[in-house]
Every structure is written in structure tokens, then in C-alpha cells.
Write a protein that binds this DNA or RNA. Structure first.
Lengths: 263, 263
DNA sequence: CCTTATTTGTGTCTTAGGGACATTATTAAG
DNA sequence: CTTAATAATGTCCCTAAGACACAAATAAGG
């Protein structure tokens, strides 16, 4: 009876102890095959995106009303944590978050840069890897209009808006990169529907770089880049009918050797 | 006796169980002030750097022999985990790691991009934020020569070398970015000592972009950029004495509107 | 001291491609 | 048929890089 008691309870006790110890060492083993990773406090890591479009001839950015702390209720960039189950890499994390908010994939997606620091998140050292993306407004129109926690915000409104984290700064950086890139590439087409006129492209570029450009220069680049093909279709424009163009399938984005001038 | 037995062992058992449970819930509480962060497995996050220099008129990259698994013994980029105690942000992590290997700070440091994926590290989903940096070989010469786990590797050797992780791919990306930037800026000066000749700069640029350039074009850019000042000192060069230049203090790096041609 | 090889520094013409702007072509409205 | 509006194109200008010749300065060798 005594033996039995020792047996039954000690087994229980030992089992519990074993579970605890296994749990501990497992954690240690997973985290430290050779290093002791536990000494490093892995930073908070998120992926955010600055999604741009052209609406009413001006540049807009997609903001989302935050549902959770920190900065609950404020506007911020769409993004969040990586889901290791769903995302093969951070590109897919960015894409997944954008799809959650717009229900479609953007035509253009590129890494901007990481922003990090000890103070940018109240929870501690954090890193956010930021992407910027371009999409045509038509693709998302219905989706956006039906919800009130997602909004296209004009870039001129940003300075006066209360924005979560350092997202205001991030948006400025993304805008600067987009502006620079608009000077030597055709990426602004990704803000347009897949059939577009030269006039629309000119307007989009001017909205992005906030300077007028020469239509002739644009035409020359369309020729030289060989990225586009003219459709046998024209469209009304308030004057002479405008030629429709579209991107050739599977073209690479050409980088011109000269920038458009910033006057 | 029976009671006693129940008492002593069950207390033991219950204690162990309590310890285990407290451990579990504590972990949960720390991680979830508002979200449930535990549902997200935070990815492994590291910071690595591609440090370039010009040595024997050709472009070299600094590699470090890995002291730990994974890829123990292989050459890899200098880098590692963020130390939240020491680093205010990831720039400082990169700088700290470079200093550990070279004992000096590079003249130029810039974020390249993040590389991520489920397969790039055997330990699981990982993200590495990569910086690239330029330094003059004189600054590090003595330090490097005295150790055998740090080495300047010529870029032509990289394809045939066994390199840890996806670092080979990362080096190629960094090289491409450096080449691109050499076409429209003067960053190659950061591979030179702070006093240098036009001939040295020409050689450095040609080593980076792997194409000859026109000396005259370089002279024009030196004039136009207004970044440099001529010292009242000349130096031997195998022919006519060469004018020494240095960067003016606190200048911004000028971005030219046109690229040098790639022939 | 003179010649030659070598590298630096400069002058100048060519070339590529964007800027400016005039002119023509189309379309809708009145 | 006229007018306003936009599209499309032609032409000249301007800037900065490419190409290349040539002069200047230095070291080595005779």
C-alpha cells in the first residue's frame, strides 16, 4: 500500500515535473541549437504597405482605421504581423494584408525599406518592413466605398492628420521614392486601368511628381521603351479621340538613363 | 499513512503542475497586452552587411568565417541579431557588427533591402535586413591582416565559393545596387582614402561598374557636383603629378540627372 | 641634357535625349 | 460653319555625356 502510494503519486509528480522540464528544454533547444538565442530579445517585426493610387487627378494613399491598441482608432498603414503558416516570405505578408483591405492584388509591389527603433512602438524595440504598392482605383472602388474603416487619403491631408506610429514619416519616404522613380521609369502606369491614354498617363505622372511635364517627352519615352502597344481603339476625351494603349504582356520595367527635369 | 502519502506526493505533484501553468500563463501575459501575439510566431530577425572596398584595383567584399551553426565554418556576411540593450535601431546593429569585425566605422552605410523566407534558414522563417557599406582599405588593413576568420574576397571568386545561407544572392543584389548608384552618384569615393586623385576615383568607379569611363566626364561631374575641394598638394602617379582632392565637410551626396553610359 | 613612356589635365566636336513650343488633326457643342 | 478642346506631330534648342586630340608634367634611360 505504501509502495503503491509512492508509485501512483510519485509517478504523477514525476510526470508533471517531466512535462515541465521537457517544456523548458524544448524551448531552449528550439531556440538554441548552438547560440543561446534566449539572451536576445527578438524585436517586434511587422510588415506594412503604402498603397498609392490616382483619384480625381491627385495622389492618394490607403489608410486603415486601427481596430487594436496601440493607437486604436487612429488611421494607419495596412499591415501587421507575419503569419508563418500563410506567408512564404514578407512579400506575401504585404500582399495578404493589402488583399484583406482591398480584396485585390495591386499591380505593382516593391519593398521600400525597414524602419526601426526603440521608441517607434510603445511595446518596445520594433522593426517594420515597409512596401509600397500601386493600384488602379477602379479595381478597388466598390470594396472601399462599402466600408468605413478604410479610406483613400489625399497626400495633402497627411500633414494635418493624426497618424499611428511613425506612419506619417513612412508615407513621406514612400512618396519621395515614388516621385524619384516616376522620373526615370513608367511605374505610374500601374496607377491606371490596363487600358489608358497618353493624357491619363501624363496626368498621373504630374500628380505624382507635382510638376508639369512635356507631353512630347512622354510620347518619346513610350516609343523608346517599347513597353506598350497601341490598341486599335480610341476613346473620347473632350476633343480629338485619344489612342488607347496597354502594357505588352510580361514586359520588364524600363529604366531610362536620364531623369525628367524638375524645373 | 495513506493520507500522509496523498498529502506529500499530491502537494509535490500539484506544485509542479502549478509551476508549469504559471510559467505558461506568464508567457502569454507578457506577449499579449492587447493582441494575442502568441498566435504569431515572430520570425527570426537578423541584420547583415555587405561591406565593399577597392583593393588592387578591384572590388572586394568582406566575409567572415562563421563560428556557429548553422553553416558553421563557412564564409558569410558579417551580422547577427539585434541587441536591444545596445542598439537604438537596426542601423546601429549593422554598424556594431561591422565594427566588431573591422574595428572601425565605414564611411558609407545604407540599407539595401530585407530578404526573407521559410527556407533561407534551417531554423525556420527568417528575415535578414541587409545593409551595404563602403570603406577605404587603409582604414582596416592592419586589423584584417591579423586575423584569419575575416577576409576580403574578390567578387569574381564569389560564384565558386561556398557561402552561408542566401548570402551569395544577397551579395549579387548589393553589387547590382552599388553599380547602379555609381552611375549617377559619387559614392565610389567612399571606397577611397579621404585624400584621393581623379585617377584613383576613376579606377574605383571602373572596378565597380566593370566598364571603362571617360576621365573627362568624371572631371565634369567633380566640377558640377561641387562636393569636392582641391588641396594645394599633388602626388606622384607614374607620370605628371596628380592633384589631390577631398570631400568638403558635411556635403550631401549629389544625384546626377543622367547616368553614365553602360556602353 | 635629350628622348621616351606615362599619366594628368584641357579643349572641342559629336551625340543622345529631354524641353519648349508651334502646327496640324479630330472631335463635340453651338 | 465656327469655336473650343484635346490629341498628335514636327522642329529647334539646350544640356551633359562620349570620343578623342593634344598639351603639360614627371621619371627613367641613355
Amino acid at each position: 500500500m505504501f509502495i503503491f502510494n509512492i508509485g501512483i503519486f510519485s509517478i504523477f509528480a514525476i510526470l508533471a515535473t517531466i512535462v515541465y522540464c521537457v517544456q523548458k528544454t524544448q524551448t531552449k533547444n528550439i531556440m538554441s541549437p548552438d547560440y543561446d538565442l534566449t539572451q536576445y530579445q527578438n524585436p517586434l517585426f511587422t510588415v506594412d504597405s503604402v498603397l498609392f493610387t490616382i483619384l480625381q487627378d491627385s495622389l492618394k494613399v490607403l489608410l486603415v482605421k486601427r481596430a487594436n491598441a496601440p493607437f486604436k482608432g487612429r488611421w494607419g498603414l495596412p499591415g501587421g504581423f507575419v503569419d508563418v503558416e500563410l506567408d512564404d516570405n514578407t512579400d506575401m505578408s504585404a500582399l495578404r494584408k493589402i488583399k484583406e483591405k482591398t480584396s485585390v492584388a495591386p499591380q505593382y509591389l516593391e519593398q521600400l525599406q525597414a524602419f526601426s527603433g526603440i521608441n517607434r512602438d510603445p511595446r518596445g524595440f520594433s522593426v517594420t518592413l515597409v512596401y509600397y504598392a500601386l493600384i488602379s482605383p477602379q479595381q478597388v472602388a466598390t470594396q472601399i466605398d462599402s466600408v468605413d474603416d478604410v479610406r483613400w487619403v489625399d497626400l495633402s491631408e497627411i500633414p494635418d492628420l493624426a497618424v499611428a506610429f511613425d506612419h506619417k514619416h513612412i508615407i513621406e519616404k514612400a512618396k519621395a521614392r515614388l516621385q524619384q522613380k516616376a522620373l526615370y521609369s513608367m511605374i505610374p502606369v500601374y496607377c491606371l486601368p490596363d487600358q489608358f491614354t497618353i493624357g491619363q498617363l501624363k496626368t498621373a505622372i504630374e500628380a505624382i511628381i507635382a510638376k508639369p511635364i512635356q507631353r512630347k517627352s512622354l510620347v518619346r519615352r513610350i516609343e523608346a521603351s517599347n513597353m506598350f502597344e497601341a490598341l486599335d481603339e480610341k476613346v473620347k476625351s473632350g476633343g480629338r479621340l485619344a489612342q488607347l494603349y496597354k502594357l505588352k504582356p510580361d514586359v520588364d520595367i524600363v529604366h531610362f538613363e536620364r531623369n525628367l527635369s524638375l524645373g
